[in-house]
Protein backbone atom coordinates (compact mmCIF):
# COMPACT_ATOMS: atom_id res chain seq x y z
CA UNK A 1 0.00 0.00 0.00
CA UNK A 2 1.03 3.56 -0.65
CA UNK A 3 3.13 4.94 2.24
CA UNK A 4 1.41 8.32 2.37
CA UNK A 5 -2.01 6.66 2.48
CA UNK A 6 -0.93 4.32 5.25
CA UNK A 7 0.54 7.21 7.19
CA UNK A 8 -2.69 9.18 6.81
CA UNK A 9 -4.71 6.19 7.97
CA UNK A 10 -2.55 5.93 11.11
CA UNK A 11 -3.05 9.61 11.83
CA UNK A 12 -6.80 9.25 11.27
CA UNK A 13 -6.86 6.28 13.68
CA UNK A 14 -5.16 8.49 16.31
CA UNK A 15 -7.94 11.09 15.97
CA UNK A 16 -10.62 8.39 16.25
CA UNK A 17 -8.91 7.05 19.41
CA UNK A 18 -9.05 10.44 21.19
CA UNK A 19 -12.27 9.81 23.21
CA UNK A 20 -10.84 6.47 24.38
CA UNK A 21 -7.48 8.05 25.20
CA UNK A 22 -9.24 10.50 27.51
CA UNK A 23 -10.67 7.67 29.61
CA UNK A 24 -8.01 5.01 29.39
CA UNK A 25 -4.24 5.45 29.70
CA UNK A 26 -3.67 2.16 27.85
CA UNK A 27 -5.50 3.50 24.80
CA UNK A 28 -3.62 6.79 25.17
CA UNK A 29 -0.07 5.55 25.59
CA UNK A 30 -0.10 2.15 23.93
CA UNK A 31 -2.48 2.78 21.03
CA UNK A 32 -2.71 6.47 20.21
CA UNK A 33 0.95 7.34 20.81
CA UNK A 34 2.22 4.47 18.64
CA UNK A 35 -0.10 5.17 15.69
CA UNK A 36 0.89 8.85 15.80
CA UNK A 37 4.56 7.85 15.83
CA UNK A 38 4.11 5.28 13.04
CA UNK A 39 2.32 7.83 10.84
CA UNK A 40 5.50 9.95 10.88
CA UNK A 41 7.90 6.97 10.84
CA UNK A 42 6.47 5.71 7.54
CA UNK A 43 7.07 9.10 5.92
CA UNK A 44 10.60 9.21 7.37
CA UNK A 45 11.49 5.92 5.66
CA UNK A 46 11.04 7.60 2.29
CA UNK A 47 13.01 10.74 3.07
CA UNK A 48 16.59 11.13 1.92
CA UNK A 49 18.90 11.80 4.87
CA UNK A 50 22.49 12.99 4.93
CA UNK A 51 24.58 10.51 6.96
CA UNK A 52 25.81 13.35 9.23
CA UNK A 53 22.25 14.07 10.31
CA UNK A 54 21.30 10.56 11.42
CA UNK A 55 22.71 11.01 14.93
CA UNK A 56 20.94 14.33 15.62
CA UNK A 57 17.69 13.00 14.13
CA UNK A 58 17.89 9.93 16.35
CA UNK A 59 18.44 12.13 19.42
CA UNK A 60 15.54 14.39 18.42
CA UNK A 61 13.18 11.43 17.99
CA UNK A 62 14.15 9.76 21.26
CA UNK A 63 13.86 13.05 23.16
CA UNK A 64 10.42 13.74 21.77
CA UNK A 65 9.25 10.23 22.71
CA UNK A 66 10.81 10.70 26.16
CA UNK A 67 9.02 14.00 26.66
CA UNK A 68 5.62 12.51 25.84
CA UNK A 69 6.30 9.52 28.10
CA UNK A 70 6.55 11.84 31.12
CA UNK A 71 3.41 11.31 33.20
CA UNK A 72 2.87 15.08 33.37
CA UNK A 73 2.84 15.30 29.55
CA UNK A 74 0.13 12.66 29.43
CA UNK A 75 -1.96 14.79 31.83
CA UNK A 76 -1.14 18.03 30.03
CA UNK A 77 -2.25 16.61 26.67
CA UNK A 78 -5.69 16.01 28.21
CA UNK A 79 -5.95 19.24 30.21
CA UNK A 80 -4.69 21.81 27.75
CA UNK A 81 -5.91 22.21 24.14
CA UNK A 82 -2.49 23.61 23.18
CA UNK A 83 -0.69 20.53 24.47
CA UNK A 84 -3.25 18.28 22.79
CA UNK A 85 -2.44 19.95 19.48
CA UNK A 86 1.30 19.79 20.22
CA UNK A 87 0.99 16.05 20.77
CA UNK A 88 -0.78 15.49 17.45
CA UNK A 89 1.91 17.50 15.61
CA UNK A 90 5.11 16.50 17.40
CA UNK A 91 4.63 12.76 17.85
CA UNK A 92 4.44 12.25 14.06
CA UNK A 93 6.81 15.03 12.95
CA UNK A 94 9.41 15.29 15.75
CA UNK A 95 9.35 11.67 16.97
CA UNK A 96 8.17 9.29 14.22
CA UNK A 97 9.62 11.15 11.23
CA UNK A 98 13.19 11.61 12.53
CA UNK A 99 13.22 8.03 13.87
CA UNK A 100 12.08 6.75 10.47
CA UNK A 101 14.86 8.77 8.85
CA UNK A 102 17.53 7.47 11.21
CA UNK A 103 16.81 4.13 12.92
CA UNK A 104 16.73 1.88 9.82
CA UNK A 105 19.92 3.52 8.53
CA UNK A 106 22.18 3.46 11.55
CA UNK A 107 24.66 0.65 12.17
CA UNK A 108 23.44 -2.77 13.27
CA UNK A 109 25.19 -2.51 16.64
CA UNK A 110 23.56 0.82 17.49
CA UNK A 111 20.20 -0.49 16.29
CA UNK A 112 20.56 -3.54 18.50
CA UNK A 113 21.50 -1.31 21.43
CA UNK A 114 18.38 0.81 20.82
CA UNK A 115 16.19 -2.28 20.76
CA UNK A 116 17.68 -3.65 23.98
CA UNK A 117 17.38 -0.21 25.57
CA UNK A 118 13.72 0.17 24.62
CA UNK A 119 12.89 -3.28 26.00
CA UNK A 120 14.52 -2.52 29.33
CA UNK A 121 12.86 0.92 29.49
CA UNK A 122 9.48 -0.72 28.90
CA UNK A 123 10.27 -3.09 31.78
CA UNK A 124 11.11 -0.18 34.07
CA UNK A 125 7.93 1.68 33.05
CA UNK A 126 5.90 -1.47 33.61
CA UNK A 127 7.25 -1.80 37.14
CA UNK A 128 6.73 1.92 37.86
CA UNK A 129 3.11 2.01 36.69
CA UNK A 130 2.05 -1.30 38.20
CA UNK A 131 3.71 -0.81 41.61
CA UNK A 132 3.54 2.95 42.30
CA UNK A 133 1.64 3.47 45.57
CA UNK A 134 0.33 6.83 44.31
CA UNK A 135 -1.53 7.95 41.23
CA UNK A 136 1.08 9.01 38.70
CA UNK A 137 -1.43 10.73 36.41
CA UNK A 138 -4.13 12.97 37.83
CA UNK A 139 -6.38 12.17 34.87
CA UNK A 140 -6.60 8.43 35.33
CA UNK A 141 -7.79 5.97 37.96
CA UNK A 142 -5.19 3.94 39.85
CA UNK A 143 -6.62 0.63 38.55
CA UNK A 144 -6.09 1.85 34.98
CA UNK A 145 -2.56 2.95 35.84
CA UNK A 146 -1.84 -0.63 36.95
CA UNK A 147 -3.36 -1.96 33.72
CA UNK A 148 -1.00 0.35 31.85
CA UNK A 149 1.89 -1.19 33.79
CA UNK A 150 0.80 -4.65 32.63
CA UNK A 151 0.40 -3.28 29.09
CA UNK A 152 4.03 -2.12 29.02
CA UNK A 153 5.10 -5.64 29.96
CA UNK A 154 3.01 -7.19 27.19
CA UNK A 155 4.47 -4.71 24.73
CA UNK A 156 8.00 -5.56 25.86
CA UNK A 157 7.22 -9.26 25.46
CA UNK A 158 5.71 -8.74 22.02
CA UNK A 159 8.61 -6.64 20.76
CA UNK A 160 11.21 -9.07 22.05
CA UNK A 161 9.48 -11.87 20.15
CA UNK A 162 9.22 -9.73 17.03
CA UNK A 163 12.92 -8.95 17.22
CA UNK A 164 14.23 -12.30 18.44
CA UNK A 165 12.27 -14.81 16.35
CA UNK A 166 13.82 -13.72 13.00
CA UNK A 167 17.26 -14.49 14.45
CA UNK A 168 16.21 -18.12 14.55
CA UNK A 169 14.28 -18.15 11.27
CA UNK A 170 16.82 -16.24 9.23
CA UNK A 171 14.36 -13.66 7.91
CA UNK A 172 12.50 -10.73 9.41
CA UNK A 173 8.85 -10.65 10.45
CA UNK A 174 8.60 -6.98 9.49
CA UNK A 175 6.91 -6.03 6.20
CA UNK A 176 9.31 -5.01 3.43
CA UNK A 177 8.11 -1.41 3.70
CA UNK A 178 9.80 -1.09 7.09
CA UNK A 179 13.05 -2.57 5.88
CA UNK A 180 14.35 0.26 3.72
CA UNK A 181 17.82 -0.24 5.15
CA UNK A 182 18.34 -3.20 2.84
CA UNK A 183 18.23 -0.85 -0.13
CA UNK A 184 20.66 1.61 1.37
CA UNK A 185 23.53 -0.84 1.76
CA UNK A 186 24.94 1.13 4.63
CA UNK A 187 24.99 -1.45 7.38
CA UNK A 188 28.20 -0.97 9.25
Amino acid sequence: MNTVLLSTLCFGAALVLQPMARLDPVAHMLLQYPVLGVSGYLLGLKMPTAPDLRGPLLVLGITCVGFWMLPRSLDAALDSPGMHLAKLVTLPLLAGLPLGMSVPRVGAVLRGFLKAQSLSMLGVLSFLYSHAPIRICNSYLIEDQQRLGAGFLWLAGGLSLLWAVPLFLGHSLMPDLLLQRKKHHDLC
Binding site: I62, T63, L70, R72, S73, C137
Partner: peptide, 28 residues
Protein backbone atom coordinates in the same frame (compact mmCIF):
# COMPACT_ATOMS: atom_id res chain seq x y z
CA UNK B 1 28.47 13.87 12.60
CA UNK B 2 29.75 13.53 16.17
CA UNK B 3 29.63 17.29 16.72
CA UNK B 4 26.08 17.50 15.39
CA UNK B 5 24.99 14.61 17.61
CA UNK B 6 26.64 16.10 20.68
CA UNK B 7 24.92 19.42 20.02
CA UNK B 8 21.58 17.61 19.68
CA UNK B 9 22.15 15.81 22.99
CA UNK B 10 22.88 19.12 24.78
CA UNK B 11 19.78 20.77 23.28
CA UNK B 12 17.64 17.72 24.15
CA UNK B 13 18.89 17.57 27.74
CA UNK B 14 18.21 21.29 28.18
CA UNK B 15 14.71 20.83 26.78
CA UNK B 16 13.89 17.95 29.10
CA UNK B 17 15.38 19.86 32.05
CA UNK B 18 13.05 22.78 31.31
CA UNK B 19 10.04 20.52 30.68
CA UNK B 20 10.39 18.94 34.12
CA UNK B 21 10.86 22.21 36.06
CA UNK B 22 14.53 21.40 36.52
CA UNK B 23 14.00 17.63 37.01
CA UNK B 24 11.81 18.39 40.03
CA UNK B 25 8.44 17.46 38.55
CA UNK B 26 7.81 14.40 36.41
CA UNK B 27 4.11 14.23 37.28
CA UNK B 28 1.34 16.79 36.95
Amino acid sequence: AGAYTLTAVVVAATGLYAATDGLRALTA
